[in-house]
C-alpha cells in the first residue's frame, strides 16, 4: 500500500512551503499527497438568531469559496508531477480535524507550515503546530 501524506493547507506562504516539502518527499517515496483545508468551527460557539437562520446558506458559500480559492489552485499547482493528489475540505478545530483526517485516511505523516507566531502569541491564542505535535496519531513534520 502506498503512503499517504496529509498536508494542512490554508493558502498561506507557510502552507505553501509545507506542501512543496511534502511533494518532494512524496516524489521520493512514491506517496499520495492529501491537501486538507480545515475551516475553523466550533459547535459550541454562540450565534444570533439571524446567523442561525443563515448558517446553512453561509456554510455552502464558505465551502464553495474554500474550494475555488484555496483547494483548486493548490491542487492545480502540484498536479502533473507524478504524485497522486487528493483533497479534503472539513469544518472543525484545525489540529483535531487534521488528526481525524489522518486517522481516517490511514495517513503515515502530517505536514504543516509554521506561521511563526511569537511565544506570547501562541500562549494566548494557542498554535496549530503546538496542538498537533501533542496530539497527532502519526509522525508530524512542521515546516518553518
Amino acid at each position: 500500500m502506498n503512503d499517504k501524506f496529509v498536508v494542512g493547507f490554508d493558502g498561506s506562504e507557510a502552507a505553501r512551503r509545507a506542501l512543496d516539502f511534502a511533494m518532494d518527499r512524496a516524489t521520493a517515496q512514491g506517496a499520495t499527497v492529501v491537501i486538507a483545508h480545515v475551516l475553523e468551527w466550533s459547535p459550541y460557539s454562540f450565534l444570533t438568531p439571524t446567523e442561525l437562520e443563515e448558517r446553512h446558506m453561509r456554510r455552502k458559500e464558505e465551502l464553495n469559496r474554500a474550494e475555488t480559492s484555496i483547494i483548486t489552485p493548490a491542487k492545480a499547482s502540484v498536479e502533473g508531477k507524478g504524485v497522486p493528489v487528493e483533497t479534503v475540505l472539513r469544518y472543525g478545530h484545525i489540529a483535531d480535524t487534521l488528526c481525524e483526517v489522518a486517522e481516517k485516511m490511514e495517513a503515515t505523516q502530517i505536514f504543516i507550515g509554521r506561521n511563526g507566531h511569537s511565544r506570547f502569541g501562541s500562549r494566548v491564542f494557542g498554535s496549530v503546530a503546538g496542538n498537533l505535535v501533542q496530539t497527532a496519531p502519526v509522525p508530524c513534520t512542521i515546516v518553518p
Binding site: W41, P43, F46, R55, H56, L63
Partner: peptide, 15 residues
C-alpha cells in the same frame, strides 16, 4: 461529523 459547520444542537439551545 459530516454536518460540522451547520447549526449544532448546542448553538440552537444557546441562542
Amino acid at each position: 461529523p459530516n454536518d460540522a459547520g451547520e447549526v449544532s444542537h448546542f448553538q440552537a439551545l444557546a441562542t
